[in-house]
Design a protein around this nucleic acid. Structure first.
Length: 746
DNA sequence: TTAGGGTTAG
């Protein structure tokens, strides 16, 4: 950063004096010829449409000495910093050559930097101005520099500017006040924004717009709409920007009816519909669920920009219409990273991690855009879902190599990825590396400990979080209760549950109730679980009945299981999981007639058990195995390994658990189960033949692990002296030396 | 003698 005044060394030698001798500081003493040239050169600046032309004029100005006339230099700076072909670097060079820039010139540079990709420069130039300019910043300076603070969400910096504006007696300027409303709004301090707004003596349309937008963006759409009505009462005519803010509020409220009314209001009041407003309408229709309106508008729009395209793409993707989303994506004239992210995140958030990662790989090969934080969060989450640790690790390295700053979101995703891929140590390493942790970072780590069966450690971490004065949220409590449930910590679970609302102000939701039913039911307190459900202030959901049903399976309570199952099916008649669970309970207790009865019902309804699938990552490639799968190219070796395992198990006296063998509903499953070919066994066998002896075998199963496979995995870990990490739908099982970390409580 | 504030995806 250069200091003012300087850089005159780079100025070509000119014979004119450098300091004004005139009484008017804005007027430089010019020779009559130069004075004549001035107007022609200044009009030349206005005609420039490239930096090259501007440089020619610049040279001419240096030759004639006109460059040292502050007014003319100001014109040159404006053209170089703000014109459509502007180059801020060049503007900066020009600025550094000006011996004594006037306030206008300073303001122009501050203004240009404020809306540049690097708004910090704006604030740095402002600080230089304070040091080097003889004038105090004026009513023009503050709006620009406050804008820079808004862009950076630099609350304390912006507050200081507010203070300086007051000291400079500028605090009644409506431009400054409007900037401040926007600034406080973008820092999320709606109270301060509103305080400035009400104190604005002569509000104009921008004052109202700033406040409406602040409310809409700040999670208070009701207030935004209320203010819009207030604006009408005060007879302030709304403009296109107002309507963008109002539509944004409708979108946040998911209020299609009001949104439609706003669109007709725009038409009735002949408000100028520019591209931004069209996009806001498009976004509203899409998010409020009127896809047809959105489509109609999109195809009617003459101009479309990247926002319009991305909104459509996102809409299709969120509806699960992946082909159409892809079609829009391919048709986009330009694809920025947001477009890629829309496609990747749609797959990632709809349980299609493989598809998400395929698009991620495509992005890496294309030259269109570079992954940003959002992309990496999605890719990490997809890796976590798949248990693809090699890819997850690669992303971690990518982040470090590209110097991408870890925000809370990325940190949370990294912790989650390592935990879900089975490397709890690494997850904790990331956790310890973060100096300041937000509630999501804490919660993700608690969840990691919980899913690995470290219930006590999870609760200890929860206490540490409270000591660090971080307020737990609903997610934290789900994770903490989950930790209690995996470890059978009934008393702790109950204590925390009943503290949620009175102590922490978190109203228990359906997930928390389901966790509590799980905690009580799993530990055998089935009657307590039923009483708990009866006393629930909200209607018991599918997951609540599912938890009770699961507990009944564990404790073989048929009567209660039937009740839970029928309540669950009332809510979701096509829930195949409920049928399978109930059928397993019947099988376990030998009620074969009922098993076949259920099987018939399922067939009549066209319900199929979700096929079990286990995956394992070897050398960065994720392999999936279904029951009795023989599609792998090493299938032969896998099956001979299984034979070898079976022989070894037999030699140590292992007898397959018949009840597990006969639990399954479908005939094909029965056949394959009899052959001992569950997907998790296939994946483990493949791990044994393809990975080095020191490498732990990490397997991810989409369903709950089967009881027989659990026993077999324990034995394998002892017989082969191998560490096996098996993640099922609910938790991790660490098999080592013939034991499992879950201590058979699962 | 130059000008300024508020605008929709992820």
């Amino acid at each position: 950063m250069s200091q003012k005044p300087m850089a005159t060394q780079s100025t070509p030698a000119v014979s004119l004096p450098r300091h004004s001798k005139s009484n008017n500081p804005n007027l430089y003493p010019l020779s009559p010829t130069v004075n004549n040239d001035r107007y022609s050169i200044l009009s030349l600046i206005n005609q420039c449409n490239s930096t090259k032309q501007l440089k020619q004029v610049h040279a001419q100005m240096l030759r004639t000495g006109l460059f040292f006339d502050p007014f003319s230099a100001g014109k040159l700076i404006t053209a170089s910093a703000l014109s459509p072909f502007s180059s801020l670097d060049y503007a900066r060079q020009v600025f550094d050559q000006i011996p004594q820039p006037n306030l206008f010139t300073w303001n122009t540079l501050i203004r240009a930097y404020a809306s540049s990709p690097d708004p910090t420069q704006s604030i740095l130039v402002f600080l230089q101005l304070l040091h080097h300019c003889e004038h105090f910043p004026d009513k023009f300076t503050f709006p620009f520099v406050i804008k820079a603070a808004s862009e950076l969400k630099a609350f304390r910096v912006g507050r200081a500017f507010h203070g300086m504006a007051i000291k400079g007696s500028l605090s009644s300027d409506v431009y400054i006040l409007n900037s401040l409303v926007h600034f406080y709004g973008s820092c999320g301090d709606l109270d301060l924004a509103y305080a400035v707004f009400v104190k604005t003596p002569q509000k104009d349309v921008v004052s109202w717009n700033s406040m409406i937008t602040a409310f809409a963006q700040g999670g208070c759409p009701e207030e935004a709409l209320e203010l819009f009505r207030g604006m009408e009462k005060e007879n302030v005519k709304p403009n296109d920007v107002t309507m963008v803010g109002v539509l944004s509020a409708c979108t946040k409220k998911l209020d299609l009816e009001f949104g439609r009314w706003v669109c007709s209001y725009i038409e009735r009041n002949e408000i100028n519909v520019n591209l931004t407003l069209s996009n806001a309408m498009l976004d509203m229709y899409m998010k409020c669920g009127s896809f047809e309106d959105a489509k109609r508008l999109f195809y009617k729009m003459q101009d479309k920009d990247i926002f319009s395209w991305t909104t459509m793409l996102d809409g299709y993707a969120k509806l699960g219409e992946y082909d159409k989303a892809r079609h829009v994506f391919d048709a986009m004239p330009r694809k920025d990273i947001a477009a890629w992210n829309a496609l990747i995140s749609a797959f990632e958030q709809n349980g299609k991690p493989k598809e998400a990662l395929a698009v991620f790989r495509e992005l890496q090969l294309s030259k269109d855009a570079k992954p940003d934080e959002v992309t990496l969060v999605c890719a990490l989450s997809a890796s976590a879902q798949l248990g693809a640790m090699d890819l997850g690790r690669w992303i971690d390295v990518y982040i470090k190599k590209h110097g991408i700053k870890l925000n809370y979101h990325l940190t949370t995703s990294l912790i989650d990825m390592y935990a879900k891929c089975g490397d709890l140590e690494k997850a904790l390493e990331v956790y310890y590396s973060v100096e300041r942790k937000d509630v999501f970072v804490w919660s993700a780590t608690i969840a990691g400990l919980a899913m690995h069966g470290h219930g006590r450690a999870a609760l200890d971490l929860f206490s540490k979080m409270l000591e660090a004065k971080v307020k737990p949220n609903a997610v934290t409590f789900t994770n903490v209760l989950c930790a209690c449930s995996h470890k059978g910590l009934v008393n702790e679970g109950q204590r925390l549950f009943y503290q949620m609302e009175p102590v922490y102000g978190v109203v228990p939701g359906e997930k928390h109730y389901a966790c509590m039913v799980d905690i009580l039911g799993r530990s055998g307190l089935l009657q307590e679980a039923v009483k708990f459900i009866e006393k629930m202030p909200i209607l018991p959901t599918i997951s609540v009945w599912g938890a009770l049903l699961g507990a009944c399976r564990l404790h073989g309570n048929i009567e209660l299981a039937e009740q839970a199952c029928s309540r669950l099916l009332e809510l979701d008649p096509r829930n195949h999981g409920a049928y399978v669970l109930l059928s397993n309970i019947y099988a376990k207790t030998g009620k074969w007639d009922r098993v076949s009865g259920l099987r018939k019902i399922m067939r009549d309804f066209g319900l199929k058990k979700e096929p079990g699938c286990s995956s394992i990552e070897v050398n960065g490639i994720v392999y999936e195995f279904l029951v009795g799968d023989n599609s792998h190219k090493l299938s032969k070796e896998i099956y001979s390994k299984l034979d070898e395992i079976a022989a070894k198990l037999k030699s140590v006296g292992y007898v397959p658990n018949k009840s597990h063998l006969l639990q399954l509903v479908e005939e094909e499953d029965m056949k394959e189960q009899a052959l001992n070919l569950h997907s998790e066994k296939l994946a483990i066998a493949y791990g044994l033949i393809s990975m080095g002896p020191s490498q732990p075998i990490r397997v991810v199963k989409n369903l709950r692990v089967c009881g027989d496979c659990h026993s077999v995995a324990k034995l394998i870990s002892g017989l082969y002296d191998r560490e096996i990490l098996l993640r099922d739908r609910y938790r991790f099982h660490h098999f080592r030396g013939g034991n499992c970390s879950c201590m058979d409580y699962w």
